[in-house]
Design a protein around this nucleic acid. Structure first.
Length: 554
RNA sequence: UGGGGCGUAGCCAAGCGGUAAGGCAACGGCCUUUGGAGCCGUCAUUCGGAGGUUCGAAUCCUCCCGCCCCAGCCA
């Protein structure tokens, strides 16, 4: 599939033409291990690894682990799992910013020696006050002009742990009057007596993102350092550090991060959803995390397709979640095995069908792919059909069962509804009575008779019980923002159905296997599923033309 | 209004001076033993607005308007 072009590819094409990097293309995906990856990261992964693949280059996986207070091993493990699952391979190029701590420290000392960095004794609060505002310049720190010797000595003592947290920082000496706040003597190191998930107690000074990122890119000989738009303001600083050091200089390129309707994407909010119990963990199928989408039944291919379809640009955008859903259907339509499953069963008795007979009927596994073959379906006198496939008073254009109406049972017979039982107290229909026409069995000449509707069914005595978890959008509104974003959480985003009846072929289905429940939707087997207690997640519904008609006619 | 970025259909998004791709959604129709899938068609005389340059402008220039990001020792 030809990759869609983008402004980033234009830049790379140009760099290749001018031989800027000797014909190399080297990218990197640099997550901070402080949470699980979400679909926005998937966009970035597909972008960075996709660039490397298409230009015969490489893409590194690098953990940006410069803040030990927020990072954990659990996250670095989940991130590797998710990247691999998405279908990408860093092929041995797995790095950590913490691998470069010693080198970074050395670089910092170089800047001090060049008079381009200094140790500052201002507290965080004082630094803020000195920084100025958007419209007023900042004031120089009183420690800005310390001698190289004093700075070197202090910096070394910071590393040795002589000073408490927050008492001193190493700052770049740039310009406190710069209109770009990032250039007003940004902090390079802070004192932090915290245990790091990889370096343990080795360090008590940690580099900031601005100081670590560009230099890490340089060390790894990255050519195109692709990041999101909010870092565009940092690019002058990124460039300044590299130039001040006089080392290999990659090019930072920014693109717009992904936003999706009816969900939230910030790591902070996702963490809150998990910690405050609105969902059951990072991989809850309602979450936009990669692991959540995976459990929901999304396939790596569908996510890659999605990344291709939405493209890469610099304009802030919010993609309609319907686009994502369509990508899943697109993939699963061609691959998913079709099965019969009745979610809300209602008993149906075929009165003129013999008591003890069980027929084996042929069913197609996937009409899109004949190579997937056929299977046998048992048929008998008592069946279950979907409650929604019967109406006592059918609305206009309703093609399914109703008193006196005919309908085709998929792969079986045409039946006619002759009566029904109703619980007079609740008004609930408890059983349907039908007759069948023996001449209309699928394959027989009479089976080509036209009937308006075809419905799915399972044989009552052969069906297997199952649980279905139906998911809907996590939020009730398109863009849940603001401080009260939690108020818009959709309390009906999960509906659990027990006592569903599915065809017996499903008995041995394993977690993550996906199926199309005919006429209903795509479902995958959940990890909670057990033999004898099958659990299915609804990944996405099928397009439902009838629902649309009914909604329109109200 | 200090700096940076962005405005093309309901939502994404091509377009790079020669007369508005594509996808999603929506809406018609065909087809159908999934109201699925598939197929056909409709959907921007106009590109945030106003001027200007040009034979010709979404593309170049000027001004204006709107939205997003930045005042963490987070990334």
């Amino acid at each position: 599939m030809p990759e869609r072009k983008s402004f980033i590819r234009d830049i790379i094409d140009e760099d290749l033409k001018t031989n800027k990097y000797g014909g190399r293309v080297q990218t990197r995906f640099p997550p901070e291990p402080n949470g699980y990856l979400h679909i926005g990261h998937a966009k970035s992964i597909c972008l960075n690894f996709g660039l490397a693949r298409d230009y015969k280059g490489f893409c590194n996986l690098r953990f940006d682990d410069t803040n030990p207070t927020k990072e954990e091993m659990e996250y670095v493990e989940s991130i590797q799992r998710d990247v691999k699952w998405l279908g990408f391979d860093w092929d041995g190029r797995l790095f950590y910013a913490s691998d470069y701590f010693e080198q970074l420290y050395e670089y910092a000392a170089q800047l001090i020696k060049k008079g381009k960095a200094y140790v500052c004794d201002l507290t965080a609060d004082e630094v803020r006050k000195h920084r100025g505002t958007l419209t007023e310049p900042g004031k120089d720190s009183p420690y800005r002009n310390r001698s190289v010797e004093e700075n070197l000595d202090l910096f070394e003592r910071m590393r040795k742990g002589e000073f408490p947290d927050g008492t001193r920082t190493l700052r770049a000496k740039i310009n406190m009057a710069s209109p770009n706040l990032n250039m007003r003597d940004p902090v390079m190191y802070r004192v932090l007596h915290a245990s790091h998930h990889r370096t343990g107690e080795t360090w008590c000074v940690y580099p900031t993102y601005d100081w670590a990122h560009g230099q890490s890119d340089s060390i790894e000989q990255i050519t195109h350092s692709v990041c999101t738009l909010e870092f565009a303001d940092h690019r002058p600083l990124y460039d300044w550090f590299l130039d001040a050091l006089g080392i290999y200089h990659p090019q930072q390129i920014e693109f717009a991060r992904l936003n999706l309707t009816y969900t939230v994407m910030s790591k902070r909010k996702l963490l809150q959803l998990v910690e405050e119990g609105f969902v059951n963990g990072w991989n809850d199928p309602r979450m936009p995390t990669i692991s959540g989408l995976r459990r929901r039944g999304y396939t790596p291919k569908s996510l890659r397709l999605f990344a291709d379809r939405i493209g890469v640009a610099r304009s802030e955008s919010t993609v309609d979640v319907a686009m994502l859903e369509d990508c899943l259907r697109d993939d699963l339509n061609k691959r998913a095995r079709r099965v019969m499953a009745v979610l809300r069963p209602i008993r149906l008795v075929i009165e003129n069908y013999p008591e003890e007979v069980v027929e084996e009927l042929d069913a197609v596994n996937n009409p899109e792919d004949a190579s997937m073959g056929t299977r046998k379906l048992p048929f008998s006198k008592v069946l279950y059909i979907e409650r929604d496939d019967f109406r006592e008073d059918p609305p206009k254009k309703y093609f399914r069962l109703s008193p006196g109406a005919e309908v085709r049972l998929r792969y079986a017979y045409i039946i006619k509804c002759t009566g029904f039982k109703k619980d007079e107290k609740t008004g609930e229909i408890t059983e349907l009575q039908c007759t069948y026409d023996p001449e209309t069995r699928s394959g027989l000449p009479q089976s080509s008779r036209k009937v308006k509707g075809t419905i799915h069914w399972v044989s009552a005595q052969h069906a297997v019980d199952a649980e279905a978890r139906l998911y809907d959008r996590l939020f009730n509104i398109e863009g849940p923002g603001g401080e009260d974003w939690r108020d818009f959480i959709n309390s009906k985003a999960l509906e659990v159905l027990k006592g569903c009846k599915v065809e017996q072929n499903l008995q041995r289905a394993k977690p993550e296997e996906v199926f199309q429940f005919e006429r209903v939707g795509y479902f995958c087997v959940d990890e909670d599923s057990r033999k004898g207690n099958l659990v299915f997640n609804r990944s996405v519904t099928l397009r439902d033309t009838w629902a649309k008609i009914e909604k329109k006619d109200n």
